[in-house]
């Protein structure tokens, strides 16, 4: 397996996963007593805490509050200074360009699912803290934030689920005949830090995968609305995009099933009246 390849000849990745295999997801909801909703989520070694406060009256009277007919979503994404796995230490937990941009992206992902029209003149705070970062941090943050919103009892339209698909930079710039692609897509799903660092091209997708329904079995069709899509790394040939998107969406659907199970488990163990 050369340095450029993400998948070995045997079809295995550096951590022994298959190309379309997610890392182990472990979830706990309601970790904090004081916030209105909270969740802790592990995707492999990426560990994230999310807390939700609200809906409440907007703070910062100087800005005139929120006079609009819909609620506002306020997000903050911050990374603990000891979160990097690779030994070095982060200078500041938040306020730098990268975390500010991620905060904004997180807001987009949350705004897509919260029914803001139910909360005029109000504000909902979503705070995410990355405790350990090992690739796909933003996706873990979105997933944890969704669970925290559910824990807070805020009505949502669907799960907002993030997933990445990564393709080695060697193949990314070559044209493929798009008719060859049959549904399952290309690239590897849910990359860890080591795979992200190989100079590969990563497509990050936040989607609303929809409940597993009639069209779920035939996942070749394009069910699932994409809310946030972001590419990083080297350039990507346009013909590769469709395959990568399909792979990421499949990852989102798989993640949704796991998150949904976790929510149902949480509700049944904590609420005896739940059937």
């Amino acid at each position: 397996m050369s340095g450029q390849d993400l998948v070995s000849d045997q079809g295995l990745r550096v951590d022994g996963r298959r190309a379309n295999e997610l890392r182990q997801i472990r979830v706990r909801m309601g970790v904090f007593g004081q916030s209105d909703g909270s969740a802790y989520l592990e995707q492999g070694n990426t560990k994230v805490l999310a807390a939700v406060y609200g809906p409440h009256q907007p703070r910062g009277g100087g800005r005139g509050g929120n006079r609009s007919g819909t609620g506002i979503i306020n997000c903050q994404y911050s990374m603990a200074v000891f979160s990097f796995s690779a030994g070095e230490r982060k200078k500041r937990p938040r306020g730098d360009r990268k975390t500010q941009e991620t905060s904004l992206q997180l807001r987009r992902a949350i705004e897509a699912i919260v029914q803001v029209e139910l909360y005029p003149r109000s504000q909902i705070d979503v705070f995410v803290e990355v405790l350990q970062s090992d690739g796909s941090d933003y996706c873990a943050a979105v997933n944890a934030a969704t669970l925290a919103l559910i824990d807070a009892g805020i009505p949502i339209k669907d799960y907002s689920v993030g997933c990445t698909a990564t393709i080695a930079s060697m193949g990314a710039s070559e044209e493929v005949d798009s008719k060859d692609e049959t549904g399952s897509g290309t690239g590897i799903v849910d990359a860890n830090h080591m795979e992200e660092c190989t100079g590969a091209t990563t497509l990050t997708v936040v989607a609303l995968p929809g409940a597993p329904g009639s069209n779920y079995e035939s996942d070749t069709d394009n069910s699932g609305l994409v809310v946030v899509a972001q590419g990083t790394g080297a350039r990507l040939h346009l013909s590769r995009l469709e395959g990568l998107r399909q792979r990421a969406l499949q990852g989102c659907r798989d993640t949704r099933v796991i998150l949904d199970q976790a929510v149902r488990f949480h509700l049944t163990t904590h609420d005896p009246h739940f059937i």
Binding site: F32, Q76, S78, A80, V81, P93, R94, D125, F127, E129
Partner: peptide
């Protein structure tokens, strides 16, 4: 170094 996370209370948001 002590970092007060906004997870604790919304008053800790930002700076």
């Amino acid at each position: 170094f002590v970092d007060c996370s906004a997870n604790a209370t919304p008053a800790f948001e930002g700076k």
